[in-house]
């Protein structure tokens, strides 16, 4: 499309054929300069915020990993102490492990359920828009509210799940009090909240697929599964690619639901990286440097995992 823009420039230059080559060159340079200046002028407003609250904080964060204090107490240079502590701290290992386990449980479940629902929703001739809104409702819930709602689901005495279990004659489960169950309960909440978003995204992508291919495949005798496997999945590659990378970035930052439902417990079984960052920095002690080093670790973790995914999904 930018080729067309180029053509219009050439038309502009061609209108002044009487210019000498030097004049032409000068005019062209002036034009290019103006064009560049205009473009940068359009970028400046966004760049101000981008630099002030993204680029500078990243630099600042790195600087703080070598210091301590700064929020309540004065800042002191501590060298590599924070980094050493991060890699020695047991809770750091636990929180990274919990976060990864959570991602491995949550992301595949969300994607399988969402893709299934999107495929089903695509077949619904009537009432599609009602179902779409209903499915999206959990995504619109603020985490604070979602976590409250979820307490009604997993509460030991009057939660929906246990009431149902008891009615079925099973033993009630201690969904958030049991260290083995707590992270799973959080995962259930996040899946419940996330499915709507991805369903709509997949549905939008499915609707955009070329129908002729499906008709051709049906004529060739491909069954529904074959069509899904050999047409839908390859055609949805860009969507799935985007979805996997974004879901990884977002889910590695799990915090709100943990902070509200379990606050990391029981026995640190739901301690996540961001939860720990928030704890070290704002909740208990003034361990800003440690929190900064942990934040930087998270940043690196996300970058590395996202880049690995991009590598794996781009090729093939």
């Amino acid at each position: 499309m930018s080729d067309i823009t180029l053509t219009s420039t050439e038309i502009g230059a061609a209108g002044q054929l009487s210019l000498s080559p030097e004049e032409h060159k000068r005019e062209q340079r002036r034009y290019l300069l103006r064009r560049t200046a205009t473009a940068y002028l359009f970028l400046v407003p966004a760049a101000v915020f981008f630099i002030a609250f993204l680029v500078i904080p990243i630099g600042f964060l790195f600087f703080y990993t070598f210091h301590n204090g700064g929020i309540i107490s004065p800042r002191v240079y501590v060298g590599l102490d924070n980094w050493r502590n991060v890699f020695r701290d047991d809770l750091v290992i636990t929180s990274i492990k919990n976060t990864l386990v959570y991602c491995l449980m949550a992301i595949p479940s969300v994607f399988v359920i969402s893709m299934f629902l999107a495929l089903v929703l695509q077949q619904a001739t009537r009432g599609g828009s009602v179902f779409r809104s209903v499915f999206y409702l959990p995504t619109l819930t603020p985490y604070v509210v979602a976590a409250l709602i979820w307490q009604f689901v997993v509460h030991r005495d009057f939660g929906i799940l246990n009431m149902t279990l008891v009615k079925l004659g099973r033993d009630p489960v201690n969904w958030i009090g049991d260290p083995d169950m707590a992270l799973k309960s959080i995962t259930m909440l996040e899946v419940w909240r996330g499915v709507g978003f991805w369903t709509l995204l997949f549905l939008a992508a499915l609707i955009g697929l070329p129908k002729e291919l499906y008709q051709a495949a049906a004529i060739d005798g491909a069954n529904a599964w074959q069509r899904f496997r050999h047409l839908t999945i390859p055609l949805l590659r860009p969507t799935i690619f985007f979805a996997v990378v974004m879901a990884t970035i977002w889910n590695l930052q799990l915090f709100d639901s943990v902070s509200i439902m379990t606050n990391g417990g029981p026995q640190n079984s739901t301690a996540t990286v961001v939860w720990y960052i928030q704890q070290t920095t704002f909740a208990y002690t003034d361990k800003v440097g440690f929190g900064a080093a942990l934040s930087f670790t998270l940043l690196m973790l996300i970058l590395v995992l996202a880049l690995i995914e991009i590598r794996l999904l781009r090729k093939r």
Partner: peptide
């Protein structure tokens, strides 16, 4: 790819 949560401390400061 930059998580906001990781920038919490410098942003706060």
């Amino acid at each position: 790819m930059v998580p906001f949560a990781a920038l919490l401390i410098p942003t706060f400061i």
